[in-house]
Amino acid sequence: MIEFLKKHYEIVEKGSRLYKLQIESDKLVEILSYISINSNFITLSQIACTDWIEDEVFSLNYILTTKERDKNLMVEVRIGRVHCSLPTLLTLYPQAQVMERDLHEMYGINFRGNDTLYDFALENWNEIPPLRREFDTLAYVNEHFDFRIGREDNKDVKVEVKRRKAQAKELKDGK
């Protein structure tokens, strides 16, 4: 079945059962519906989004699985990081609704046509979407929470080891 698709699109073979395909974001729905109708990659298993901040791009991988659940096809789409929006896949796969909700909350991607993008995991969250690279979780934590007294943190390990050795030696000399 994979040869049939190779004729239409240039598909990279990543592993014995893993294939990758790079497409433009505006042809997403059309290609995915073509694939799901003609080939046996009928199920959307996952929408994985990676934030390449240095290339100023989000790369979304729509991972499709065959009817026999033996091969996976990763369809990659790249969109800009600022006003990022994509067409929804609700017409093709009902399970996309939840995945789009998750990505909308975590990355701020707007899925045109999916009007049930209410909050998924965070409640009254007014910071920037947390999984974007520019959101620094350690800074957020230091600003909102205080740590318990006596919990020194991320000190250089070597300095600490040297100090303890000196202390032990001094104790031994003292005795």
Partner: peptide, 18 residues
Amino acid sequence: DIFVATESARGEFGYYMA
């Protein structure tokens, strides 16, 4: 980037890693 899947007691667990 890679996608691997394993069968847990409740169904297929999919990991995408880059």
